[in-house]
């Protein structure tokens, strides 16, 4: 098992106040890492540190390093757009771009300069299949992505990320607005996808982490309290805070 990310003494500040404190964590390739923790504990900030999306915000500062395949992604030499192509992201709210389903999926590939129609068609079919939505949209790829249901939109967003052929997929509470069936479809997709991708799944639903994550990390007030095999975190956590959170006794 190789390691995708090595995170060393990583600190993150919004306007001078620390949001991630001295984070040390290794993320293994081809696994699903679940990230749980109460609201405001820094889960989203952690995720957005891995593809440097936090930089769209003003007043941020980082310390320490995040190595991806051994290279520090905060190195000034790093091409940020290139990094984001390698580290795809699905947001909490499904956000199809206001264009057709087809155009949504090929948005990333087109940016990378792929323009052959047959190549794009192939990518669209493959990505939509991988996101478990192909059968629902195959006849209406020209339809606006905005016309899909919320659950379909979220799977479209997943397909759009897959079409970029990233190495890592970050998901920020991707099922928070979805019904159980759509949620199950996304979870099924993720368990298949981890064979090819490294997946980090932030979730508010601890049961979801228990169902799909290989390892789980627990965040609290900007600190990672503990990380370990999901089974162990949920049955025998080392820290009292973790135990309190997963048993729902957290205030």
């Amino acid at each position: 098992m190789s390691t995708k990310f090595n995170i060393h003494n990583f600190n993150f500040y919004f306007n001078g106040s620390p949001v991630l404190k001295d984070l040390n964590l290794d993320v293994t390739s081809n696994e699903i890492l679940g990230v749980i923790g109460p609201a405001g504990s820094g889960k989203t900030t952690f995720l957005r540190s891995l593809n440097r999306m936090n930089e769209l915000e003003a007043g941020i500062r980082t310390e320490g390093e995040i190595l991806m395949d051994g290279q520090n992604i905060y190195d000034p030499e790093v091409d940020v757009a290139g990094l984001r192509k390698r580290v795809g992201m699905v947001f909490a709210m499904p956000v199809p771009l206001p264009m057709s389903i087809y155009e949504n999926v090929v948005y990333g590939p087109r940016l990378s300069g792929i323009s052959s129609k047959s190549r794009l068609d192939e990518l669209v079919e493959k990505s939509l299949k991988e996101a478990f939505i192909w059968d629902e949209v195959r006849d209406r790829l020209k339809l606006s992505g905005l016309r899909l249901s919320g659950g379909q939109q979220q799977r479209l967003c997943l397909a759009r990320v897959l079409a970029m052929k990233p190495e890592v997929i970050l998901l920020d509470e991707p099922c928070s607005g979805l019904d159980p069936i759509s949620t199950a479809k996304i979870e099924d997709a993720l368990t298949v996808l981890k064979k090819e991708y490294t997946i980090i799944l932030v979730t508010n639903n601890t049961k979801q982490a228990a169902r799909v994550a290989d390892k789980t990390a627990f965040f609290l007030m900007g600190e990672m309290i503990e990380v370990g095999l999901t089974r162990q975190i949920f049955t025998a956590p080392a820290k009292k805070e973790t135990h309190d959170y997963i048993t729902g006794r957290f205030g």
Binding site: N51, M53, L56, A81, G82, R84, K85, G88, M89, F91, M93, V95, L97, P98, Y107, G108, L111, S112, C157, R160, V161, M164
Partner: peptide, 16 residues
């Protein structure tokens, strides 16, 4: 704003 975020997250440059 989310459209910008999505576009950037898919590896687009500012001009793209």
């Amino acid at each position: 704003k989310v459209y910008r975020e999505v576009s950037f997250s898919l590896g687009a440059s500012g001009w793209q």
